[in-house]
């Protein structure tokens, strides 16, 4: 089935985007990314260790930008200014790469997005030519505003980052999806495969996750489960579910042509 995900004018065949944090080593990171079939992978931007382990392998040796679309994030940023600085550094690091994930956090205990700062950062980044995929609250008004600013995708949380609590407010996600003209991705909160399938059945264009895979007992197996769940959910969405019929059963087998009832023998 040819059903590409289009972000900032580029087509992707996978609708599962994955993070690269919390794995036990780079080999497991790479194996999980590949089992997920992900083409877009998020990375964080951090200070390099000075004077430690020269020659040590780096994440980009394992996930080369020539093979994967890297999505640098602003995880850990609490102001628009820090998020913008981080992504300018990321663009320099990745040779002018424009696609980025903006997240400006508001509270370290729940990692909820700070929407005023997020909007401010989005305005600056769009003006500077970045293609901004933006982590946001599941508020349809904020999501629409981010789209109007020029973000290339809006990414509401399903529940708080790293919680694995699943999709807590499907109605808000539907409101966002029904109003959006850019791709809508669930970012944060997915705990297991059924959560990913539900997100896709709601009409999300894609799902972004990290902990649900990295914190599974077997991360590589869960990555594969997520690949199938996202695909199943997408196909179910496109196929269109049957209507729900409350209190009225309807048999699937023919009601005529039954053999004679025993009492007639």
């Amino acid at each position: 089935m040819n059903d590409p995900l289009i972000i900032a004018g580029k087509a992707y065949s996978s609708r599962l985007l994955v993070g690269t944090g919390k794995y036990k080593d780079f080999a497991e990171t790479r194996e999980a990314v590949d089992a997920a079939g992900a083409e877009i992978v998020t990375v964080a931007i951090r200070r390099t260790n000075i004077g430690q382990h020269p020659g040590e392998q780096s994440l980009l040796d394992v996930l080369p930008p020539s093979q994967y679309t890297l999505l640098p994030n602003t995880a850990g940023c609490y102001t628009a200014e820090d998020a913008v600085r981080t992504l300018r550094l990321a663009r320099e690091l990745l040779d002018g790469h424009a696609l980025v994930k903006l997240e400006v956090l508001g509270d370290p205990s729940n990692l909820y997005p700070n929407m005023p700062e997020t909007l401010k950062a989005a305005e600056t980044l769009v003006k500077e030519g970045f293609d901004v995929m933006v982590y946001c609250s599941d508020d349809p008004i904020q999501a629409k505003r981010l789209e109007e600013i020029g973000c290339v995708a809006v990414m509401p949380l399903a529940s708080i980052i790293g919680s694995g609590m699943g999709i807590l407010n499907p109605w808000n996600l539907r409101l966002i999806i029904d109003n959006a003209r850019v791709p809508v991705l669930v970012d944060a909160g997915v705990g297991t495969a059924s959560d990913a399938a539900i997100a896709m059945e709601l009409g999300c264009d894609a799902v972004l996750m990290n902990s649900a895979i990295a914190h599974a007992r077997q991360p590589v197996l869960m990555a594969s489960a997520m690949k199938h769940a996202v695909r199943a959910g997408r196909e179910a969405y496109l196929a269109g579910r049957m209507p729900r019929k409350l209190y009225s059963a309807e048999p699937s087998s023919p009601t005529s042509g039954m053999i004679a009832p025993a009492r007639c023998l």
Binding site: T29, A44, L93
Partner: peptide, 10 residues
């Protein structure tokens, strides 16, 4: 000076 690299993250 800030010298940065890409590391694992979500």
């Amino acid at each position: 000076l800030e010298i940065i690299i890409a590391v694992g993250g979500g």
